[in-house]
Design a protein around this nucleic acid. Structure first.
Length: 248
DNA sequence: GGTTACAAGAAGAACCTCGC
DNA sequence: GCGAGGTTCTTCTTGTAACC
């Protein structure tokens, strides 16, 4: 049984929200780790996600185990994160039951966060892949004034909460294809491989099933490779994966 | 150079969605 | 209602980068 703190402004919750926001699946802010987040929260330097974008070099460089280089790298990472896009920012908000996949679905169905935050349960439940629990969670999130305020401040700080024009996701040559990654790839990080697949309209799944189209196995593959073989799913090595991307 | 923190990935349990 | 498929969440491990 999981226990969740009901106090949205408690420091522990704020730390977790910031760590989630800076994580790979969200805004991918290099250098924003547990120790640093703990310091900036405990010193009262941030009270919500938007405050991250108002931190300056001198403040960051003065923190424990931080120097000039780390501060500069972190500020550059903050700047890069602003253009991560709607679905990453949406995932980064940490709405319960909204992981990477659900965030992608919502970002594909709504043109902007302004549209999404006004959506009611019925509108959300009408979307493929969104059930009552997720819909209720999204409505509850945007129903809280403090959450709406944070989103507004993030927008003011330049975070992109809008679907780009001409987005091909779900419409490319890999449209409808489910691909599972296992092991380490030499030419791609997981994030880069995921980005390449999604850019061609494909979908990266977390587990192998009969509906999986391909399993891409790098070095030291995990149990997913065994499962793919037992289910007769086509397995690609890195060269095969590269060829698949280039052929499309 | 040692220490510390972060990044990246694997694995599995819990839980959600959807079709039958 | 149930089961299959899929996603989320958490924990653990290992390698690397940066600070002191």
């Amino acid at each position: 049984m999981a226990h969740r703190c009901p106090n949205a402004s408690c420091p522990a919750q704020l730390r977790e929200r910031i760590l989630h926001w800076g994580g790979r699946g969200a805004m991918d802010i290099d250098g924003l780790g547990d120790s640093l987040v703990r310091q900036i929260v405990e010193q009262g330097l941030v009270e919500d996600l938007a405050d991250l974008y108002e931190l300056d070099h001198a403040t960051l460089a003065g923190l424990e185990r931080m120097g000039d280089l780390s501060a500069r790298n972190l500020l550059a990472a903050f700047e890069r994160s602003k253009a991560r896009g709607f679905r990453h920012a949406l995932y980064g908000l940490g709405i319960r039951f909204v992981g990477g996949t659900v965030a992608t679905i919502l970002a594909g169905d709504f043109a902007s966060i302004e549209e999404l935050k006004e959506a009611d349960r019925e509108r959300l439940e009408a979307i493929d892949g969104i059930g009552p629990r997720v819909a209720e969670s999204v409505v509850a999130f945007f129903g809280r004034p403090e959450n709406r305020r944070v989103v507004e401040r993030l927008l003011e700080n330049g975070i992109v909460f809008r679907r780009p024009a001409g987005d091909r996701r779900g419409q490319g040559p890999l449209a409808g294809r489910a691909i599972v990654l296992t092991g380490s790839l030499e030419r791609f990080t997981r994030a880069q491989a995921t980005e390449a697949i999604e850019a061609l309209g494909g979908r990266v799944a977390g587990s192998v099933s009969k509906k999986t189209d391909y399993v891409v196995a790098g070095a030291d593959p995990g149990s997913k490779l065994d499962r793919a073989r037992s289910l007769g799913v086509e397995v690609l090595d890195e060269a095969g994966f590269t060829a698949l991307l280039e052929a499309r």
